[in-house]
Design a protein around this nucleic acid. Structure first.
Lengths: 234, 234
DNA sequence: AGGCTTGTGCCACTCAGTGGCACATTGACG
DNA sequence: CGTCAATGTGCCACTGAGTGGCACAAGCCT
């Protein structure tokens, strides 16, 4: 229905996967039709044919189910950050996912570039069928639902902390290094949110590639943002 | 009790002010003693001697009352940004609040420097009696209360949007300029959160001046964060 | 004093989220 | 193949946040 159902899993797992997907799909559909607050959990559960108790075994909150697409993305980001190329110079893999093996050069590559590639790679990993549609629905919803936005921000924050832990394992971070890594991660999130907002706002052509392009474009603005001057109004 | 009660206000206003202060003080006290989730609104209202209905005329949510100190700070920031020096070169006013009058130089001062001074000025404006204690209590609470943290993030986000509107009025922002301003504001918030975390974590000496010093120190790290390289672990 | 405005208290209500228990399905093992 | 343990699910009752409505009282104006 929504994404691939990895075949030949313990069967019990397949059921869980399907239930989860049904929940997400139904939720986005109902929320889109009646607004986030216009749908009660009872209504959603009835539509998805599960009990409310079951719903909360899959998602921690009503907001959670609507943000599943974003959470999938950041989970993939964390995975890439953990298993992908740590710090090779990698002047940018040109094509798609970063595939270079972990290098060990004394002078590593730029941190921001590493983050950017991992996130771009995560975007490329998202299931082709329907993911873009789900993010789109999810973000449009979040734009007019404060509580969803708040949970989204909080989730990004948690992701950043997790990423910091990963970095601590893979990189040599001294005091200032840790602070800088934290700031750089915040910048990544900030840039991604800008890119995502612009991507959602565009009238058509919502492809993952386009999102990636926008991300890279905003990331390239970061140095200019640091150096920007305030030009008073004429 | 907590801050100055501006004398000779319409009297009606003074009562409101006092009610609000009582609510904040009682809330922080109870939350500190029993934890955020360990206190019900009914209990809080009883302790503060107001009805629950009244509580919600002052604060939008349970989280809101616990974050009053932070909200006061950002309100002051917005005010300074709106009424303070717009974009004069002002290589840094050395002393305290930025006092220079709005200039109209063709090449303005750095955006980040402007933000930094406004926020530092806002810190300086906070009521001397008890404000630091309240932020301290508030932040320590937020650190172990996810929902508070989420609301805090969301509030910062709203503040940034408001700041962008102000900047639009005062500065000449073209397309890339707007994006850069947005990114720079995110950087300010990110830097402030780092500074605040470190400030809260320190064992003693929680003065506003110290917080300001930390803010400036983290802000100075921003350019290094952009340029940071990933040093692989040995 | 009169009336007008504005903040407050009380009450009943909706709905998100939780805990407990009984039941059904799955998978493993004898 | 039958049985048992594990695990997922449904149902139910409950707490607690947040809202709407209305009547009352305290401040303000003339």
């Amino acid at each position: 229905m929504t994404a691939e159902i990895p075949p030949a899993l313990p069967l019990r797992e397949r059921k869980k996967l399907r239930t989860r997907q049904t929940l997400v799909a139904t939720a986005l559909e109902l929320f889109g039709a009646h607004g986030f607050d216009g749908v009660t959990l009872d209504g959603l559960c009835e539509a998805a044919e599960v009990s409310k108790r079951t719903f909360f075994r899959y998602f921690a909150s009503k907001e959670d189910v609507a943000m599943a697409p974003t959470q999938d993305l950041w989970a993939a980001f964390l995975d890439l950050l953990e298993t992908g190329p740590a710090a090779g110079p990698a002047p940018r893999p040109a094509g798609g996912q970063p595939g270079g093996r972990p290098g060990a050069q004394p002078e590593g590559r730029p941190l921001l570039g590493l983050f950017e590639d991992c996130l771009a790679g995560a975007i490329g990993r998202m299931p082709a069928g329907g993911w873009t549609g789900r993010v789109l629905a999810s973000r449009r919803l979040a734009a007019r639902t404060p509580s969803m936005d708040a949970h989204g921000l909080a989730f990004c924050d948690r992701t950043i902390r997790a990423a910091l832990v990963v970095l601590d394992h893979r990189l040599a971070l001294d005091g200032p290094g840790r602070l800088r890594a934290r700031l750089a991660l915040d910048m990544l999130v900030s840039a991604f949110r800008q890119a995502l907002d612009a991507w959602v706002a565009q009238p058509s052509g919502h492809t993952p590639e386009d999102l990636t392009r926008r991300l890279r474009a905003v990331m390239a603005e970061l140095p200019h943002a640091v150096a920007a001057k305030a030009e008073p109004r004429a």
